[in-house]
């Protein structure tokens, strides 16, 4: 029987490509067939050498184990090198110092930690960065998260044009964040400034707030998808019971929707704590390595320190690692606390 390569109706301009599509699908099938017959051959050869015996549970278990090991061998190796070893190396690095003359690292003890603790308590730039990072984190939790939830709820409740809005809200994930940042910067600094007479980014009093606005404005996408997805899985009966009892939409949002998707919210809240130390606030997109001091965040400062491939950056590796180690301790503490509190005081599913 001849195989059907086009089984769905083809419309419009796509018709022009039918020959191409057919050739392409034939090609795919051809490769797939070859792969399959190869596999069959190997299998047969294997069977010939090791004729099948009466299967024992143990034997099957052993086979499974071998297959299991084959599957996880690479991931585990990768994990050992790029997670375990990288992090051990990072800890070691934080006790070292770079010697420019010989381009090698040598141990200096706690010097990097001392320098870092001095800077974070005394250096004006670093203190500003700490303040900015905290501000940005609070804004993501207190403003961005509720907005995400509300928008998701509207989409879930099918406001008029919900599908178009879903597309627009997903655009920040598709268009490169770099392009969005640059167009935002050009628009605000050049076009908007000429209408309202104020350069919102360049003004010290509004600069970081504009950055925060940008971070929220351009951060929709994945979270909304996850939340709408979670909302769509809420059981219909629960909602209907609520409606029978005369709940308004707001009450439904508060009493039914939120508790139901609480676990998903917890995932994002818990995973978001690290952003306190890693969020660059799009500054590298905006300004490259030379953002104004009053805009910088911790994530940005430490990224810029090490990003170049030269001696000056190599010399900063130990300092950055030391800071990272301390940040990790703080982040881990906060995360565990947040997780504990969210689980203790959050709504329980009955």
């Amino acid at each position: 029987m001849k195989k059907q390569y086009i089984d769905e109706p083809v419309k419009g301009i796509k018709k022009l490509f039918i020959p191409l599509i057919i050739i392409y699908r034939m090609f795919l099938d051809f490769i797939a067939d070859k792969l399959y017959s190869l596999e069959v051959k190997i299998h047969q050869a294997y069977r010939k050498r090791f004729p099948e015996k009466r299967t024992l549970i143990k034997k099957k278990r052993k086979k499974e184990l071998i297959f299991f090991i084959c599957l996880v061998a690479y991931p585990v190796l990768q994990f050992l090198v790029f997670y375990v070893f990288v992090n051990i190396n990072s800890i070691l690095l934080s006790f070292k110092k770079f010697d420019t003359e010989t381009a090698t690292y040598f141990y200096v003890g706690l010097e990097n930690f001392k320098n870092f603790l001095r800077d974070i308590t005394q250096d004006y730039g670093m203190i500003t960065a700490v303040k900015n990072s905290v501000k940005l984190y609070l804004a993501t939790v207190l403003i961005a998260l509720p907005l995400n939830l509300v928008f998701s709820f509207f989409l879930y409740k099918k406001v008029p044009g919900a599908n178009s809005f879903r597309t627009v809200l997903f655009l920040p994930q598709i268009i490169s964040s770099l392009v969005i940042s640059l167009m935002f910067r050009y628009f605000v600094e050049n076009a908007l400034a000429s209408i309202i007479g104020v350069n919102l980014l360049q003004n010290k009093s509004s600069g970081f707030n504009t950055i925060i606005f940008f971070c929220i404005w351009a951060s929709f996408g994945t979270q909304i998808l996850m939340y709408t997805n979670a909302m769509s899985k809420i059981s219909k009966e629960l909602v209907e019971v609520g409606q029978l009892e005369g709940m308004s939409l707001f009450q439904e949002f508060w009493h039914v929707t939120l508790p139901s998707i609480y676990p998903t919210i917890v995932v994002f809240l818990v995973a978001g704590v690290a952003s306190l130390f890693t969020h660059q606030a799009g500054l590298y997109n905006f300004y490259g390595p030379s953002a104004r001091q009053d805009l910088q965040t911790l994530g940005y400062i430490f990224f810029v320190k090490i990003v170049r491939n030269n001696d000056a950056a190599f010399a900063q590796y130990p300092y950055a690692s030391a800071a990272g180690l301390l940040f990790t301790v703080v982040a881990a503490t906060i995360t565990l606390t947040v997780k504990h509190l969210l689980e203790k005081y959050g709504p329980r599913e009955d």
Partner: peptide
Amino acid sequence: DRNSFDTVN
């Protein structure tokens, strides 16, 4: 000039 502090300029 009002564009003088515009970093895009």
